[in-house]
């Protein structure tokens, strides 16, 4: 499959960066190309400290950069709504893993899909 996978990260660089538990409040994102042609890119999440709407701002940032899949431990309700409306595939990955570890699971097809909640 082609596309870009974005992961919220709290520290570290590139493939060694560690996953932040929360999507919208992560200080940065690492965007990787699972097909292996683009080098990992780091996007600073300027809205991480926003009083409201951090998740929407983060979703807008990723959509601008052509992201098609996101893996995180938790998504806020508005971030989830925005990402799904933008056609982004959502996956679950525990915080603390490295980007390399998540990428490996993604390529192996073992990363759990984040199912749409039914209220």
């Amino acid at each position: 499959m082609s596309g870009r996978l974005a992961l919220p990260v709290r520290d570290g660089e590139g493939l060694q960066a560690r996953l932040d538990a929360h999507f919208g409040r992560a200080p940065a994102f690492v965007v990787v190309d699972p097909d292996g042609t683009e080098p990992p890119r780091r996007l600073v999440n300027d809205g991480a400290q926003a009083e409201h709407g951090a998740g929407i701002g983060a979703a807008a940032l990723l959509l601008r950069h052509g992201v098609t899949a996101v893996a995180a431990e938790r998504f806020g309700p508005k971030a989830e709504q925005a990402l799904r409306a933008g056609g982004v595939a959502l996956f679950l990955a525990p915080g603390g893993l490295t980007v390399a570890e998540v990428l490996e699971r993604f390529r192996a097809g073992t990363l759990a899909r984040h199912e749409r909640k039914v209220y």
Binding site: G47, A50, H52, G53, A54, I56, G57, A59, A60, L63, K78, Q81, A82, A85, G86, G87
Partner: peptide, 14 residues
């Protein structure tokens, strides 16, 4: 306030 998000084909209002 990030209350409006433009997506291909739609605009989401929060």
């Amino acid at each position: 306030y990030h209350a409006i998000l433009v997506l291909p084909g739609t605009v989401l209002v929060f």
